[in-house]
Amino acid sequence: MRAKTSRLYKKAMHSYCISFNFRTPYQILLDSSFCKLATEQRLNLQQDLQTVLCNPTRPMVTECVIQELHKTGDHRAATVAKSFERRKCKHHLPVTSQQCILELIGSNNDNNYVIATQNDIIRKQIHDIPGVPVLRVKNGMIILEPLSKVTKDAILQKEKEKTLPSSAEAQQLKIAKLVQKPPTEPVHKKRKVKGANPLSMKKKKKQSPPPPKKQKNQGNKKNKNTNNDKTTTNTTSKTGEKRKRSSDDTKDS
């Protein structure tokens, strides 16, 4: 068996174990058609079933299956079936293996049986029951059929139920809702107006300080002093001319 197929079989049986409480060793109910074809192809059922399911197994047959094999004349298959564990059924008179196995499975497969059969009618009816793995012989080897649609839907439903609260928790939630006070409106605090982040702001350029006012007064004073100097020079020049004229007049007289 390939590694890829063994991984698929492990994954399928793991889903059966989680969702439908299958446990090792797996209980495998063998049909008369399965026992007949396995003996014809000389399969070692005890070993091959363990390699397919990757776990220890318990092959089982009912008295109805053995009696059906004797009626059809498959005595070799009947001797192989007698080597397996007997599963008691409610039939005092032997019935067909199809009827016997379907009655043992019931509507929910409470005993977690794995069914090994080549009968197409049994396989179709089993596919309508959730949580029933099916084994069959194909090309000289035993294969595990993939999960049916009903089984997949049941797994999804159980996964949803796990997320929901239990009945006791639901009652506690109802009581808590009745006791709970009506919700009050939350008081929103006003946010303080914050200034801009100083690190994100550009630094202000330093402006050169304006010239002091004293310099203007000193400039006015300088202008006044120059004007006074000019007036004094003009007055002195005029007085000097008057003196010269007065001296010239005295000389003439």
Results as ranks from 00 to 15, higher is better:
residue 5 T to C: 00
residue 8 L to D: 06
residue 9 Y to T: 09
residue 10 K to Q: 09
residue 10 K to C: 05
residue 14 H to Y: 15
residue 22 F to C: 11
residue 24 T to K: 15
residue 25 P to I: 14
residue 29 L to Q: 10
residue 35 C to R: 02
residue 38 A to P: 10
residue 40 E to A: 04
residue 40 E to M: 04
residue 41 Q to S: 11
residue 42 R to H: 09
residue 53 L to Y: 14
residue 55 N to K: 15
residue 55 N to F: 14
residue 58 R to M: 12
residue 59 P to N: 01
residue 59 P to W: 02
residue 61 V to M: 05
residue 63 E to W: 03
residue 65 V to N: 03
residue 66 I to S: 02
residue 67 Q to I: 00
residue 68 E to T: 01
residue 69 L to M: 01
residue 70 H to A: 00
residue 71 K to P: 00
residue 72 T to N: 03
residue 74 D to Q: 13
residue 74 D to E: 14
residue 75 H to D: 11
residue 76 R to I: 06
residue 77 A to W: 07
residue 83 S to E: 10
residue 84 F to Y: 09
residue 84 F to K: 00
residue 87 R to I: 05
residue 87 R to E: 09
residue 87 R to T: 08
residue 90 K to N: 12
residue 90 K to M: 07
residue 92 H to G: 02
residue 92 H to R: 03
residue 93 L to H: 03
residue 94 P to C: 01
residue 95 V to I: 03
residue 97 S to C: 11
residue 97 S to G: 15
residue 98 Q to H: 14
residue 100 C to K: 05
residue 104 L to M: 15
residue 104 L to R: 06
residue 105 I to W: 08
residue 105 I to T: 15
residue 107 S to F: 15
residue 107 S to C: 14
residue 114 V to D: 03
residue 118 Q to G: 14
residue 119 N to K: 10
residue 120 D to P: 13
residue 123 R to C: 12
residue 124 K to I: 12
residue 128 D to R: 11
residue 130 P to S: 10
residue 133 P to I: 06
residue 134 V to E: 11
residue 135 L to D: 07
residue 136 R to H: 14
residue 137 V to I: 15
residue 142 I to H: 04
residue 146 P to A: 09
residue 146 P to H: 11
residue 147 L to T: 09
residue 148 S to N: 09
residue 149 K to M: 08
residue 152 K to N: 09
residue 156 L to W: 12
residue 157 Q to I: 04
residue 158 K to A: 05
residue 159 E to N: 11
residue 164 L to D: 04
residue 165 P to M: 00
residue 165 P to T: 00
residue 169 E to G: 01
residue 170 A to S: 02
residue 171 Q to A: 07
residue 172 Q to W: 13
residue 172 Q to C: 13
residue 175 I to N: 09
residue 176 A to L: 10
residue 182 P to M: 02
residue 185 E to W: 06
residue 189 K to Q: 08
residue 191 R to Y: 02
residue 195 G to V: 06
residue 196 A to V: 01
residue 204 K to T: 07
residue 210 P to D: 08
residue 210 P to Y: 12
residue 212 P to C: 01
residue 212 P to F: 00
residue 218 Q to P: 07
residue 218 Q to S: 04
residue 220 N to A: 01
residue 222 K to W: 12
residue 229 D to F: 13
residue 238 K to E: 15
residue 239 T to R: 15
residue 243 R to A: 08
residue 243 R to Q: 08
residue 246 S to F: 13
residue 251 K to M: 02
residue 253 S to K: 01
